[in-house]
Simulated scan of single mutants.
Amino acid sequence: MSHTLSNPEGLHDPVPFGYSHLAETSGELVVVAGQYASDEEGGVAVEDFAAQVELAFAHLGRALRAAGLEYRHVVRLGTYIVDHDTEKLAILGERVNALWEGRPPAQTLLGVAGLALPGMLFEVDALAVRG
């Protein structure tokens, strides 16, 4: 099965960080790399946790649209929260339920001590299926 790696317009250039935003297979699977509240240069754009969740999911949507997909095509999310607690879980749950209209995909949430860059509090990756 062949695949194509790409970096959609409007998302920061991830190559200096060692990854690509999208991996599309010749079949039906599309893998979206971890999206976070990045600015145009790949730095962290906002400090607030809720704002980071919002921006990370906006970037996820942009990556999906670049592959011709929408949120509804996502079958699995991986979410990562620095210093996870129930307040942060509620913020995440609210955003996911709004985007997926109460029918969220499978999800694994990991509470972590830190993420790739200083100031990152949240990251989300996704597996989507065409069709």
Rank of each mutant, 00 (worst) to 15 (best):
Q107T: 12
L117F: 12
G131C: 11
G114A: 15
V46L: 14
H21F: 12
Q107K: 08
T86G: 03
R65C: 06
H21T: 11
V32T: 01
T4Y: 07
G119Q: 13
A63C: 02
G78A: 10
V15W: 00
A56Q: 09
E54L: 08
V44I: 14
A113G: 04
V53I: 13
V44D: 09
A106V: 04
A126D: 05
E24C: 01
G111E: 14
G10P: 06
E54G: 06
T4R: 15
L117M: 13
A128W: 02
L60H: 03
V15P: 00
R95D: 09
E9R: 15
P8C: 07
L127Q: 01
T25V: 08
R76D: 08
V15C: 01
G93D: 10
G131F: 12
V112M: 07
I81A: 12
V112G: 04
P118H: 11
L69W: 04
R130M: 02
H3I: 13
Q52W: 06
G131M: 10
L29G: 00
L5H: 07
E47F: 07
N97Y: 02
D39Q: 11
R65N: 11
L89T: 15
E47V: 08
V31L: 14
G111V: 12
F17L: 09
A113W: 00
F122G: 05
W100N: 09
A128I: 00
S20T: 15
V129E: 14
V129K: 10
L110G: 00
A33F: 07
F17Q: 06
S26F: 00
V96G: 04
L29D: 07
V82D: 09
A126G: 03
A23M: 11
V96C: 07
L115W: 06
Q107I: 11
A50N: 03
T25F: 09
E40Y: 01
G93P: 02
G34A: 11
V82S: 10
E41G: 06
G61A: 02
